[in-house]
């Protein structure tokens, strides 16, 4: 059996000495689409933040492996350069750095060489058009004055340009109207292939339309309490989390 792209073993995570995750196990293979669901405040964002190496979260027990390497102690920028990407629930606004410069710098950081300007610009404009972002946004400061939907599209634009091996999407669809969700899904589909993988946190099945979901995990009180296939999304959408019985 091939090495999973991401493997999480018995992960315990604390913030301010309060344990949020109490032993999470998860494996994501190359090309797979995984969905993480669960009621608010159960630790979904904590899990992806810990995987990304957010310094506010402390891994007290367990290991995280990425591409077969133990990255539990790796810095966030190292994980990103290895091919991890986190789409933030609340992307930062940074005045003074244009969207174009930011993405070009990020692409240079993960690939190890600065992209050639004209080819980069051409691709950026193409991907912006795909996401319905006016090209004038390339010259605007990063996320400054962007609407909630535009910020999320900016995250997907970064995903499309940086081409990571693993994307962790933390409620990328929250605050988006129906059309914007569809556009974002199209962007994700354009990026997704047999080599790269997705872990999507969502409360809404709309973003999953057109994606072949391989596994669904339900997180409750810091533990994965149920796992299954795409049918689990339908079950939760129709009956809520109460309808999903915990596995023994």
């Amino acid at each position: 059996m091939s090495t999973p792209l991401l493997k999480i073993e018995g992960l315990h995570v604390s913030v301010d000495e309060k344990e949020i995750l109490h032993g999470v196990d998860l494996e994501i293979g190359a090309g797979q689409v995984h969905v993480l669901m669960g009621p608010n405040g159960t630790g979904k964002s904590t899990l992806v933040s810990a995987v990304m190496g957010d310094p506010r979260f402390t891994v007290t027990e367990g290991r995280i492996y990425f591409k077969g390497e133990d990255v539990t102690e790796a810095k966030t920028d190292e994980r990103a350069r290895m091919g991890m990407f986190l789409s933030f629930q609340a992307p930062q606004e940074i005045p003074g750095i244009t969207l174009e410069n930011f993405i070009r710098t990020a692409c240079g950081a993960v690939s190890g060489k600065q992209p050639k300007l004209f080819a980069f610009r051409r691709e950026l404009r193409e991907q912006m058009a795909r996401l319905g972002l006016d090209e004038s946004y390339a010259e605007r400061y990063l996320n400054v004055g962007f609407s909630g939907g535009e910020k999320k599209k900016s995250e997907i634009l970064q995903l499309l340009m940086m081409k990571p091996a693993l994307a962790l999407l933390d409620e990328t669809d929250s605050g988006l109207d129906v059309d914007a969700v569809r556009t974002v899904t199209e962007g994700i589909k354009a990026w997704h292939n047999a080599e790269n993988s997705l872990l999507i946190i969502t409360h809404n099945a709309k973003i999953l339309e057109g994606l072949d979901v391989d596994h669904v995990h339900v997180l409750s009180k810091g533990l994965i309490v149920r796992q299954g296939g795409a049918e689990l999304v339908r079950e939760i959408t129709e009956g809520g989390f109460a309808s999903v019985k915990e596995e023994d």
């Binding site: 966030t76 933030f88 930062q92």
Partner: peptide
């Protein structure tokens, strides 16, 4: 942290942030 999550090293992120203030 946001810059780090895009593969930008802490040193480079610091430089970018200061430059951003002047920009």
């Amino acid at each position: 942290y946001y810059l780090n999550a895009r593969g930008i090293s802490p040193e480079e992120a610091r430089r970018l942030m200061i430059e951003a203030g002047f920009r």
